[in-house]
Design a protein around this nucleic acid. Structure first.
Lengths: 234, 234
DNA sequence: CGCCTTTTCGTCAACACGACGATTACTGCC
DNA sequence: GGCAGTAATCGTCGTGTTGACGAAAAGGCG
């Protein structure tokens, strides 16, 4: 802070996106395969540098989301995860990346060649496996994202952000089961969730999934916190 | 990401510190009075730009902590709070600031003129009052910091980070009461805390505070999460 | 020694939770 | 149509946790 010959160091600021979704019975994350060095050909989080020095961080996150995954910010929950800025995290130059976490309902399988430039969905278990290579420090970021998601399900209503606009109690329970990797009793889960005022709003409709009794349909309610919390077993 | 005439925009990266402590019966925050424009003379969070393009974010936070408040990183809990980067948050130029949150035991009143350059301790209620002017978007940051602190007390053992190395159950309870702004039943609090294995380790000693039965002294234990959580009333 | 204060231990009812039985409302098959 | 199979929903019961509060323990002080 002494202003001798010192000038304010300038660094490149990027935003990265950890878009989580529940797909095909597993917690999956949206990744891209890098087309340019460094880490060319490797898996990485979608993201990029600020478009200009005037671009807002949140706006950059929303822009990258659309550009790289084809998703709109109105479809999903988006929040800041954390900022990663180790000096050597990018071999080219100093980059500080602000990472955002998104919860998305199940996606219509963005097949390669679509609008999104080669965004792929992979199960987080597979990505976090020690044999899978991931660019930069993105494996650590993904690990933080998953842990944040698991934790948020405990004391917020964000589990419903993984569900489509209308969903059944079983849809929601499976979100919890898949994200936490545990199995939950359907009866106790039903009682617990319906006991939280404002979490779910029944639409009055019922839907029949293959076999069994038709389930009631719900929409997300106004509540954001889960009180009392639903703690996972440890 | 199209590499026409576009070059990666460079921005100045700063770290700010929200150092919270419980002092004089109130939750207080460490602030400095700005000596230079912009917002000269106004209250602001301690912080500053990266010392060089090679400096790690966490290291910069630790450095600023020592420089501006005289505190060492070993004395307190330090974690990332969030990153604030609205384009117009600094009138001079684009600045993205990574804010860190610190919980400190009660401080020996860093009187002006000491080592720390004019660090002052102010109750957060006063600072967040709409009549108090605070530089940049720091009021919003302080508000986020306080909310994070309140929330962390619910499901982690970080309340003890506000206490000195050895403390009584009442010391800890008062931390909760002051941070949450509620009053808690001493008997139920005692039962709850002693029921969490690993939160507190009794030293075996007792200490007499003025009047009343002497209280047992405790040290912080290994536990970091509070399970089950202690939820505040809403 | 009594009185005040604070800490600590106990009690009790209300509530929340895990385990699980029973009922309801469908689909599919014979 | 009747019956088996399945999933959703409602209930019950024992246990553990919480909030409200009584009571005892252990000090200071006059």
């Amino acid at each position: 802070m002494t202003d001798d010959a010192w000038t304010i160091p300038e660094v490149a600021v990027a935003v990265d996106l950890a878009v989580l979704t529940v797909h095909d019975g597993a917690l999956q994350i949206m990744l891209v395969r890098r087309g340019i060095p460094p880490f060319e050909g490797m898996l990485a989080l979608p993201g990029g540098f600020l478009a200009s020095t005037a671009e807002d961080l949140d706006a950059a996150a929303a822009r990258e989301l659309t550009e790289e995954t084809g998703l709109g910010t109105e479809d999903l929950h988006l929040e800041q995860l954390g900022t990663y800025g180790a000096p050597d995290r990018d071999p080219r130059r100093r980059v500080v990346t602000v990472c955002y976490l998104a919860f998305s309902p199940d996606l219509p399988t963005p097949t390669a060649g679509g609008d999104a430039r080669e965004a792929i969905l992979l199960p987080v278990d597979e990505v976090l496996d020690h044999r899978t290579a991931v660019a930069f420090d993105h494996k650590k970021i993904i690990s933080d994202a998953v842990e944040r998601a698991r934790s948020k399900l405990e004391y917020t209503t964000l589990g419903a952000a993984f569900c489509p606009p209308e969903f059944t109690m079983t849809d929601l329970r499976q979100v919890y089961e898949i994200v936490w990797g545990t199995s939950l009793d359907p009866r106790n889960f039903h009682r617990k969730i319906t006991g939280v005022t404002g979490f779910l709003v029944p639409t009055g409709e019922r839907v029949s999934r293959q076999v069994g009794r038709p389930a009631a349909l719900y929409r997300r309610g106004d509540a954001t916190v889960l009180h009392p919390a639903m703690l996972r077993n440890r």
